[in-house]
Design a protein around this nucleic acid. Structure first.
Lengths: 263, 263
DNA sequence: CGCGCGTTTGATAATTATCAAGTGCCGTGG
DNA sequence: CCACGGCACTTGATAATTATCAAACGCGCG
């Protein structure tokens, strides 16, 4: 499904204004910022292109400016699995390591802010404020990994899908979610297609489809387009996710509050 | 199963000599080391005690000296899930965050080297070399999380169990593994009981048991004790794990090579 | 000896993967 | 303008895997 992905909310961000390595820039001194900008290069990758090959040399690190990256691991039997998604402001690649044991690919068309790894690393070593920023970024990544783990905790496909939708709303409210006109309901824009969703949730395309249609039948969601759902019964969705950490009121107020997201 | 856990290889380490915050100490200046030691306190926790409660205040960070910690998340329906295990030299807790969304509990009796979080954080802020060490530690944690993800990639319980056993051998060769007298086969000491193993591999005690017994029937392993297996067909175990990244020869040579582990 | 705990084993039901076919949509090209 | 092919998604039937419930086993310990 090409079109909805390109025009998806997640990718419909302003021209780099806010998310241009926002995750890193925060808290840096002007001097460090200047040095950082000096080695930064914006690059655009088409959908499904490989940014970093699995097991390959890791030449670049950087952060996502626009679009979605998937970290994908290929298994011996040909199956593959998505071990994480990266959205704008997330860092990709790994500092202080020269190999990646998973490949990084473009789940949509992406714009990346790239730094040549060695140049970036020496900058990190010479600028303690940048090192601190990197530490925070890596801690975020760690949280994301733990969140992924939560995702897989769900026993059934339905539970995992519910958790995923709720995670989208909470972690990236203004990139993936909107409110209906009356501000009563949330509309979620799933940033990836069924195929990737299946790999991400550890199941198959068919099971994902059945779960989505099941939600629709049960009145939990209303399918606007295959990647755009209106959540019509938020409490039920939360109950289904088997996760106590979601709060309907908090999700809604977070969205109503202009731009109080996590960035 | 109390006894085997206490006398398990993983917990049978020398008195703090090597693993006393080894992960952090590496590369630190004597000055920083002195400051670090000044705020360090060794504490012992009995099995199943809660070191950090889920959702609770995060007062301490530190690293494991002896024993195994489990990071456990409780779900709304009462089930729980292990999101990671921490073995000697691993850091626990999270710097620069005051809540933990999972609890940290002792999977065996553990000895921890604790730092009061705020004191540790200010030390981190004032010592760039310590910050660098923390960054490396967090990167290791991130790798561990990704490895966990690999663990769950296996479609069947058998595949996940095989992957887990191989991961033990590769990541902590000298804490969990030994060689048979003729140096031909590996003996793995599983650091946790069936119950935790089930939570870790995302299945039930019964399925774990069936998988273990199945391995034994098929000649892949020989069960010495419930937590101590001799791997009798390493290549088959690797094939079963559906993971291309394990290498029988490498695992064996790694173990034969005195102490060339990852520490 | 009996109790508790961890493990094992068995039977059944629920969940999901797999295989197979069908639908709707869009862009291409006659 | 419409037929065609490709792609993403949906739907259906069947088989494999696993969770669940239930009970038994082995073993250390009081």
């Amino acid at each position: 499904m090409e079109r909805p992905l390109v025009s998806n909310e997640v990718t419909r961000l302003g021209p780099d204004a806010k998310f241009h390595h926002a995750g890193l820039r925060r808290g840096l001194t002007p001097s460090t910022l200047r040095k950082l900008d000096a080695i930064a290069r914006l690059r655009v990758f088409p959908r499904d292109s490989v940014v970093v090959p699995q097991g390959g040399a890791l030449e670049y690190v950087g952060n996502v400016v626009r679009g979605v990256l998937r970290m994908e691991r290929l298994l011996a039997d040909g199956r593959s699995q998505i071990v994480g998604l990266l959205v704008p402001s997330d860092m990709f690649g790994r500092v202080f390591s020269d190999r990646s044991d998973y490949s990084i690919e473009a789940a949509t068309e992406v714009t990346l802010c790239c730094f040549e790894r060695h140049a970036f690393e020496s900058l990190v070593r010479s600028c303690p404020d940048l090192e601190h920023a990197v530490l925070l970024a890596v801690l975020d990544e760690l949280d994301a990994a733990r969140e992924w783990i939560t995702l897989r905790a769900g026993a059934t496909v339905a539970a995992r899908l519910a958790t995923y939708l709720l995670m989208l709303c909470r972690r990236w409210p203004h990139q993936t979610s909107e409110l209906t006109g009356d501000q009563q309901r949330i509309i979620v824009n799933v940033p990836i297609a069924r195929n990737d969703l299946a790999l991400y949730l550890g199941t198959t395309v068919e099971s994902i489809s059945r779960a989505v249609q099941g939600f629709s039948r049960d009145g939990l969601i209303s399918i606007r387009t295959p990647l755009r759902f209106e959540i019509t019964d938020l409490p039920a969705l939360i109950a289904l996710s088997e996760n106590e950490e979601f709060d309907a009121a908090a999700l809604l107020t977070d969205l109503r509050a202009g731009c109080g997201g996590s960035f």
